[in-house]
Design a protein around this nucleic acid. Sequence first.
RNA 1: GGGCACGUAGCUCAAUUGGCAGAGCAGGGGACUCUUAAUCCUCAGGUUGCAGGUUCGAUUCCUGCCGUGCUCACCA
Length: 518
Amino acid sequence: MSFEQELAEQRREKLKRIEALGYLTYPHRFAYTHTLPQILQMFSSKTAEELMAEKPIVRVCGRLQAIRGHGKAGFADLAQSDARLQVYVRKDAVGDRGFELYQLLDLGDFIGAEGYLFRTRTGEMSLHVTDFIMLSKALLPLPEKWHGLQDLELRYRQRYLDLLANQEVRSVFLARSRLIRALRSAFDQRGFVEVETPMMQPLPGGATAKPFRTHHNALDIDLFLRIAPELYLKRLVVGGLDRVYEINRNFRNEGISTQHNPEFTMLEFYQAYSDYMDLMALTEELLPELAMQTCGTKEIKFGDHIIDFDNISRYSLREAICQFWPDDATRPQLDELSDEKRTADLIKNWNSMFPELDRVPVPDLANPSGGISHGAALALLFEAVCERKLIQPTIIYDFPVEISPLAKSKANEPGWVERFELYIAGMEIANAYSELNDPDEQRRRFEMQMALREKGDAEAHEMDEDYIRALSYGMPPTAGEGIGIDRLAMILTGSRSIRDVILFPLMRPEVPADSETD
RNA sequence: GGGCACGUAGCUCAAUUGGCAGAGCAGGGGACUCUUAAUCCUCAGGUUGCAGGUUCGAUUCCUGCCGUGCUCACCA
């Protein structure tokens, strides 16, 4: 028997002794008069004399986080919802049977206690217990009380222990909850309707990504976990829901990193009769609002940076390449980026300047239909040159059409679309565009994607006939945006890894301890 | 998937050049009726992630595997 099992056996033995004393071991409820946060709020300001005079009688409950015995008396710390109250148990106050129960308590047990509030000699408000019961026993020992739970693997696999032991982890997830509440309230106030669209889709669309595949037995069809809700939300705009939003999970069958979890939470919203400029304005309005409601400030500390959510700059993608180009001698002029030859030279230039980085692919001018397109190459060059430098909130607008199959072209520049992305802390946080609502143009864009797919791009967008049919009934001019909630939560909580803002990040399954290895 | 680290008691961490695997917390027993990382005495707790190899001897060196982290690639 392992030591851990031994400890559990000892505690089961205690449960039997508790039962023998006539207590229930797993009672069904406890009628408390106050939560611990309420106790602290209501009585913390009272002096020892005031408490002595009033002797307020309360019933409270929580988990034991410290026990300090003193012979025929003892102290214990009761914890509930980030609040802590010391309880004082004396044999002469709880009786022989009650004190025997006290001596059978372990760290981690839940108890319910009745008594009166007083201040100890050191001034700490405490509960002088007159009666108490066991509510539930911890058979396994909790993490160390002083250092908490450090082991990252255990913290992710057994998040409940992480939440118990590490107060700052609780506060991260409370902040995430405030963020989502602030988002809902922001969109509700602006007249948006919250909807839910399929997570299981026969055709994965709305993004370029590799999907998870699953199977429905009764229909005997393969389905895909959605990579984005986009095409369904726009069908709803066709259906007359002018302002819709959805906060839900997307699934992408790709790598895992500090910025990527296979399932992640996305807000997508669509606003009819608007274009991407309207959404830039809305985004700039939204960000400080979210920061205030989540953190109480618009200036957020992230690593070595203070990120100012009130101050959002804008560059076009081409401007950004010129602006952030690292070398004055070779810095491109804006109009040069429209020239394919000049772009190809620039990329070669970049690759030779930073040989330690991965090469940005160079478009093949002699064979324009093979290899990477001018637009896709420019987008990659932008990422290489600019992305990690975009620490302060920055909107990057106007993207190449080749990588934007669902966005509306710019009126005077058909090779470019009305699309923007929001970057904070070097991460892409949001992606938005004026939605392409011309069904014939949408078909041509899908056909362009099919051509890419035939050239081996597994992530190129699939042809979606039903979506084209929906557009054919008419969709108003509409702008839509997706915001990565996990990454926004990272920034607002100062978390360096996405796993620190996802309660149960995906891990390899544990190998059972008793399994034979072969 | 590539590269680099890490894995020792339930938890947090030690262990000299390769020489008997230790401490604190938690746990058992005992003392203690105002402590708060309570204190004091005492006891128990380990196939050092797994499997091999080198060696008189491996927590330590080597190989493979498993797991985790960071990073690169892919991506939001």
